Amino acid sequence: MKTPKRIQPLVEEGLIDEVMRQLMSGKEATVYVVRCGDDIRCAKVYKEATQRSFHQAVAYQEGRRVKNSRQARAMEKGTRYGRKMAEEVWQNAEVDALYRLAAAGVRVPTPYTCFEGVLLMELVTNAEGNAAPRLNDVELSHEKALEFHAMLLREVVLMLCAGVIHGDLSEYNILVDAHGPVIIDLPQAIDAAGSSVAATMLERDVTNLANFFGAFAPELIGSQYGKEIWALYQAGLLTPDAPLTGRVALPTAPVNVGAVIHEIALARQEEEDRIRAQMEMQD
Rank of each mutant, 00 (worst) to 15 (best):
E18R: 15
L160N: 06
R107P: 06
V164M: 03
E219I: 05
A277W: 06
D38V: 10
E94D: 11
L160R: 07
Y99L: 05
V95N: 05
K77V: 11
L120M: 09
G167H: 01
R41V: 04
Y112H: 15
Q269T: 05
S69M: 15
S195I: 00
Q234R: 14
V45I: 12
I174S: 07
E272V: 13
D39T: 12
T30I: 14
V118R: 00
Q188L: 14
Y60Q: 00
S141T: 15
L119Q: 08
A86E: 08
M1V: 14
Y225K: 08
T239K: 11
L220T: 03
G163W: 03
A150D: 09
A253K: 14
L140Y: 10
Q22C: 13
D283Q: 13
H142M: 03
A192S: 06
S170V: 02
P240H: 05
E48M: 08
A217L: 00
Y32F: 15
H262S: 10
N136K: 13
H55M: 11
E18N: 12
G26F: 07
E155F: 11
L237S: 12
T79M: 03
A193R: 12
R276I: 10
A231S: 13
A97P: 02
D205I: 12
A265C: 10
V157S: 11
F216S: 01
L169R: 04
D177E: 09
K227M: 10
G194M: 09
R35F: 02
G180F: 12
R268P: 01
A72W: 09
F213K: 00
E12R: 13
T110R: 12
R73G: 01
R80H: 08
R21H: 12
L146Y: 01
G37Y: 03
P218T: 02
R204S: 11
N68Y: 02
